[in-house]
Design a protein around this nucleic acid. Structure first.
Lengths: 116, 116
DNA sequence: TGGTTATTCAACCCTTTGGTTGACGATCGC
DNA sequence: GCGATCGTCAACCAAAGGGTTGAATAACCA
């Protein structure tokens, strides 16, 4: 089997996206850059666990981390999703996005932890 | 944490896509519907393993299977990717797709097993 | 200097995943 | 009916994944 570097990239991106905690983190970072501690705050799990999740997201290229002083700032890197999105788009001509449905979707199902 | 039905769906779709064997299967089915045995043929793994992969793809809604006689035909169901694609598209304004780059990508990195 | 805050590391645990093999049920051709 | 073929099921295994806790590192503050 051919598994080139791009396959590796798709592996890491898709498996990073497969976890709901990590998707919630990405949704939070969509709003603004955040420190690790602040990312962790709404979740009912240890800081170490969140740190691991951030490592996985960073390995996938979905976020970057920059240390300023004590604080590590996490930043969304939307380009990494592009490869995966393009790959997926080969599987069908998607109708133009229904923005109303998407808004309902974001508000109903993908809301951030604190909005429960 | 809120993990609604859509989150579950994203879980299953993204984790189905995270495996290179399953992505290769999807690429094969992009060409045409296929019997399970024919799907398995190019891979260096058991039929049972491929059968499991097909089950995972079917659970994610990415393919459907229809039994006709002895043979089970597998069919791509591109709609299931739509939810995931829409979710991903919230993470950036993607530039219009570069079709040349995409073609190189498909030919170089995501080729089917037998094209090696 | 010493204490607090921010983050990671290391070791561990349990569950899930991706593979194997061998047996089994269904269906075809003869 | 009989033997070959199609596909799944069940049991098993090693590796990876997601979580924990406690110690370590680094930077700020006083």
């Amino acid at each position: 089997m051919n598994t080139g570097p791009m396959n590796t990239r798709l592996d890491t991106v898709f498996s990073a996206l497969a976890d709901p905690t990590r998707r919630a983190i990405l949704a939070m970072l969509l709003e603004d850059d955040m420190a690790v501690t602040d990312v962790a705050e709404p979740f009912e799990m240890s800081l170490a666990a969140i740190s691991k999740h951030l490592g996985i997201l960073a390995d996938a290229g979905l976020i970057s981390r920059e240390k300023r002083g004590r604080v590590i700032w996490c930043k969304l890197e939307p380009d990494a999703m592009r490869t995966a999105t393009v790959w997926m788009q080969s599987f069908g001509q998607f109708e133009p996005v229904d923005l109303d449905a998407f808004e309902r979707f974001l508000e109903g199902e993908l809301q951030l932890p604190e909005s429960d």
